[in-house]
Design a binder for these strands. Structure first.
Lengths: 122, 122, 122, 122
DNA sequence: GTGGTCTAGACCACG
DNA sequence: GTGGTCTAGACCACC
């Protein structure tokens, strides 16, 4: 379920966070689903439990999961949170679009390209 | 011309690279314009000359500038290179768009938002 | 009567203690009322009886309830104890107020806000 | 400047966070002041550098400080952030006041007590 | 068994 | 020297 890319320059814990956010936002992990335990996931990925713990702590802080001591971590994922996260993605995308434009990328070319993407797996 | 943001998490040399790329791509710095000398820019920004040198080396490697021994660094900026850079920006944007879609962002909402941006400063 | 919030960071037994204190101090549970039996409450909440037992033991230690062997647990709630508890709440509040002031919160603003609260459901 | 209370049940890193927030909000540490380095503070307090690091990471996330790699951590503390933090303190206080009232604490007694505090070091 | 905290010691990137 | 990440191993509270 989780894959670590050691050639990726981002820290491991960030890759894990990103992957789980993806699974939750895309609906693969539903609300109240149990996350893998810190130790078991660490074992599975052959990395240190502290690294998983750090990822989970951050996911909890960002309201993606909640921890119950002695029980495990569980997916939070209520609709409001998911929508808020998606809006943040759009905000980031907007910044990137503006960046492209300020660097002289052609407007119509940009728009065409994005249109093509949105249509392709329709 | 160059501003360093110390609260930015990216290393200083990256900020400098990014800023110069911006100036070149947006046309503010034209082909064969002289870059500030390593030492003078270091003085101006109160940072280590090594840091400037690192940025220039990277800019040269990416074909944004060229060095002339004993004379200084100059903007390269031929049309082919600029266009290639812009295509890379579009590629990065495409990745981000796909990322949004895979996380459940609404297609039409995304498209609408980008359309609005491309139109606004038209 | 008792609700457990698993996304609450506090341990379950503390949530139970807090909830019962609330019910007793607010007068919902009167003196000598019978507490739910350990086993029945554990069943109802689908949690381990040990957890309920721990809460009851603590409530007894703090003089909120008393146990009668073979009969069950009962609310103590004599006036002196209730008043002592309320004073402790005030002490905690005083600490927090001093904390606010030491951190530069404006005195009159603080006072205004609390006044408003005390008046609103009068 | 920083004191650790080992009899305090809160984790060490939280005590450190709280202490620094206090110093910043009360104005003892001004904007752009240099924080003690991770290693030096760890040495001074005879605790592990990781624990300090964790505290600093959290302080940065909450916008109290900013880190510059290779230079150190610095106090952020712009006015808007400070005011926002103070409002959060007031919100927390409001909750506590409501809690007192719901548990039968006398309104006028509560108000009197707080008034006394606000006047005393005037 | 679970998560949460802490220590000790290491390596890296940055300036 | 500075912060940032990671590992290894330990102890605690909770259930």
């Amino acid at each position: 379920m989780i894959i670590i890319d050691y050639s990726d320059k981002r820290p491991i814990y960030e890759q894990i966070i990103e992957r789980f956010k993806n699974l939750i936002l895309s609906g693969v992990l539903e609300a109240d689903a149990k996350m893998p335990s810190v130790r078991s996931l660490a074992m599975e990925l052959s990395i240190n439990p502290n690294t998983i713990q750090r990822a989970y702590t951050e996911l909890e802080r960002e309201n993606f999961i909640y921890a119950v001591k002695g029980r495990g971590n569980f997916v939070k994922a209520d609709a409001a949170i998911l929508e808020k996260q998606r809006l943040e993605l759009l905000d980031a995308l907007e910044l990137q679009v503006r960046n492209c434009l300020s660097k002289g990328v052609d407007k119509t070319q940009l728009l065409e390209r994005i249109k093509k993407i949105t249509e392709e797996d329709a």
